[in-house]
């Protein structure tokens, strides 16, 4: 490695921060892993929540979903889920969308789509709980 760095144009700081040419680290990859663990636990809770609402009418379902625990489970599920979704689609865009501009627009579309899912479900869950 030492001989390689002799001809490098990188500054000493750039060499030791281990972030390479992309200038960002493993934050997205690590975020994917952490959110996946949270989503595994939340999926189990989500299944129980769905079981508790199967075949029930509007008033009964609304009553269940306005309780603190079900509402929190759903809020966490949708928010962590949409972030996990954004990271996952990003990997697929990076792998398959050719061209710098097309890729950047795809990334913007991805953020807007996942943001819409997050904000819309947050609004709905809070409205169920408070209205």
């Amino acid at each position: 490695m030492a001989s390689q760095n002799d001809s490098s144009l990188r500054t000493t700081y750039r060499r030791i921060d281990h972030l390479g040419a992309s200038r960002s680290g493993t934050a997205l990859m690590w975020g994917q892993r952490v959110t996946s663990v949270a989503l595994m636990i939340l999926t189990v809770a989500f299944v129980f929540l769905v079981w508790s609402m199967v075949g029930k009418d509007y008033v009964a379902v609304r009553q269940i979903m306005s309780k603190p625990l079900p509402a929190t489970i759903m809020l966490a599920y949708m928010l962590i889920g949409s972030y996990h979704m954004m990271l996952g689609i990003r990997v697929i865009i990076d792998d398959y969308v050719p061209g710098k501009h097309a890729r950047e627009w795809a990334i913007v579309a991805n953020i807007l789509f996942c943001g819409a899912v997050a904000f819309l479900s947050t609004y709905a869950i809070l409205r169920i709980g408070f209205v």
């Binding site: 609304r62 889920g81 979704m85 697929i92 789509f113 899912v117 479900s121 609004y123 709905a124 409205r127």
Partner: peptide, 19 residues
């Protein structure tokens, strides 16, 4: 993973309808 991005829309629809 991509299919679930579509599937979550049904869940969002259900939540908005319930609200």
């Amino acid at each position: 993973g991509m299919v679930l991005c579509v599937g979550i829309l049904l869940l969002v629809w259900w939540l908005v309808a319930l609200s």
